[in-house]
């Protein structure tokens, strides 16, 4: 469903500030896979996600969604097949527009927009049913401005918007990092629910090891722009935070040793 092939990405190439964010990264995801992507700061998790989404172009390599090469497509064209939720709750919704207006915009993702009315009565019913299932009480105030909602409510709404029209791949970029633990838990439950119901191919960036283990059926760990760990199936189910910490230490330690060896 998603294939990232030999992708390299560096920022400010050719300058003294050059930063290599991705080094020949290759990931292939099957339909229905739910990958949690974990790693330290600057590991390249978000860069990888943004390269898939088209926010950044890649320096080398290709990105395929459902066997279609999207490497050269701009962000808004790729949006037709991607659902996205951002870390910042402000980023996924339009604060000055109503809940239903936001949903109506999302409902038309990937469609040609014309001079038809932006929202129909039939859609409103559909939105109401979807909102009811979030159990946040939003269904009774669909015309209020999204700016009046809390961060958690906005993230839940963004999740609904990202999945309202089924995406080929759902990209979640630390979408609970800005929320308090309890709200984050609730938003993760909603995520799980939406992913399962729609059998969505999902890539979720997180820096919470517990969440990375608890959710999804495959775990990828990145370090310094490379994939250093990729586990799925039974192995993933048995994984503990201690295992993960140990593996992380091993991997980063080795890396460090290698660098030293090169320098000496």
């Amino acid at each position: 469903m998603l294939l990232v092939k030999d992708v390299c990405k560096s920022f400010f190439p050719g300058t003294i500030n050059e930063k290599i964010a991705l080094k020949d990264v290759t990931v292939e995801m099957q339909e229905g896979e739910f990958v949690t992507l974990i790693g330290g700061n600057g590991a390249g998790k978000s860069t990888l996600l943004n390269c898939v989404a088209g926010v950044y172009g890649v320096n080398r390599g290709s990105v395929y969604v459902d066997d279609i090469d999207v490497t050269r497509l701009p962000e808004h064209k790729r949006a037709a097949v991607l659902g996205r939720v951002f870390q910042d709750p402000m980023m996924g919704t339009a604060a000055n527009m109503g809940i239903e207006e936001n949903l109506a915009l999302a409902y038309r993702r990937g469609e040609k927009r014309g001079l038809r009315w932006g929202i129909t009565r039939k859609e409103r019913e559909l939105y109401r049913r979807h909102l009811e299932r979030l159990e946040l009480g939003l269904e009774d105030r669909m015309d209020i401005k999204v700016g009046l909602l809390s961060g958690g409510q906005r993230q839940a709404l963004t999740l609904l918007m990202a999945t309202l029209k089924k995406p080929k791949v759902l990209l979640l970029d630390e979408h609970t990092a800005a929320l308090d633990p309890k709200t984050a838990q609730r938003v993760l439950e909603i995520t799980q629910q939406l992913v399962e119901e729609n059998n969505l191919t999902t890539m979720m960036v997180t820096h919470n090891m517990r969440d990375a283990i608890k959710y999804g059926n495959r775990l990828i760990m990145m370090h310094e722009g490379q994939i250093v760990l990729d586990i799925n199936g039974e192995e993933k189910k048995k994984l503990t935070v201690e295992d993960l910490l140990r593996r992380f230490g091993q991997v980063s330690g080795e890396e460090f040793a290698n660098d030293r060896a090169l320098l000496s």
Binding site: K77, M91, A94, N96, M97, R109, R113, L115, R116, G118
Partner: peptide, 22 residues
């Protein structure tokens, strides 16, 4: 309309607009 809403959301939140295919 759909186009008009797309113009409004562009001013309000361009990131979201692009993520929604605008």
């Amino acid at each position: 309309t759909e186009i008009g809403s797309a113009i409004r959301v562009t001013g309000n939140n361009p990131h979201m607009a692009r993520a929604l295919g605008i």
